[in-house]
Amino acid sequence: MRFRYAFQKIVDLKANEKTQAEWILTEAIGKMREEESSLSELYSAKDEMIEQLQTASARTATISQLMMMQQYVDHIDHQIIRKNKDLEQAQQVVDMKQHDLAGKMMQEQVWNKAKEKALRQFTAAMLKKEQEQLDEMATNRFRRLS
């Protein structure tokens, strides 16, 4: 007789839910990495613009050119502030998805342990039944020989 776990579909469902949660977490981490990269690019652009502004102020440049460059630096600063908020939101999503994954992993583990326990009980019952059959065969053989 073969072991069949009555709740195998639930075990499979929990494994699938965990796999989906892993994919979703991976996607959220990818989004967070994109935000970090974008923020890094903004910082680089700001540094480059500040360097150009300093170079322009050292040589002869009109006030309107310097003001325009400074306005662009201010614009980049505003973008950095927005990008930091986006990055913070992406981090919160990653944290939430990690929490969800941990819950899914716990559920899967609970169901797997229940399955393992059922398998141990089944195995013990089968061994007991087999031993009883062997004992009965030995008893019958003893009766025939006596």
Rank of each mutant, 00 (worst) to 15 (best):
V110L: 10
I81M: 10
V11L: 07
M105W: 05
F122A: 00
N16K: 11
R143Y: 12
S146C: 08
E136Q: 11
E27L: 09
T123W: 01
E22C: 05
I29T: 10
F142I: 11
M1F: 12
M137E: 15
I63S: 14
Y72L: 06
R144C: 04
E34L: 11
D74G: 04
M1T: 10
I24N: 04
A6G: 07
W111A: 01
K115Q: 15
Q121D: 15
S38Q: 12
K97D: 09
Q131M: 08
L87G: 05
M105D: 10
T139S: 10
L25G: 01
Q121I: 14
M106N: 14
G103W: 00
A102K: 12
E35L: 06
K31F: 07
K129R: 06
K18I: 01
E48T: 09
A114N: 13
S57K: 15
L87W: 04
A56T: 04
E48V: 06
K9F: 08
S64F: 06
M1I: 13
N84G: 04
M106G: 07
Q98R: 13
E51G: 01
M96Q: 12
S146V: 11
E130V: 04
E41K: 15
M49I: 03
L127H: 07
M49S: 08
Q98F: 02
T19Y: 11
T60M: 08
Y5L: 00
V110M: 13
K113A: 13
K115Y: 05
S64D: 12
M96K: 10
F3Y: 09
A28F: 03
R59L: 13
Q89G: 03
N84P: 01
E36N: 08
M1V: 14
E116L: 06
W23N: 11
M67F: 05
M96F: 08
A114S: 10
I80F: 00
Q133R: 12
R2A: 09
N140Q: 15
K97Q: 14
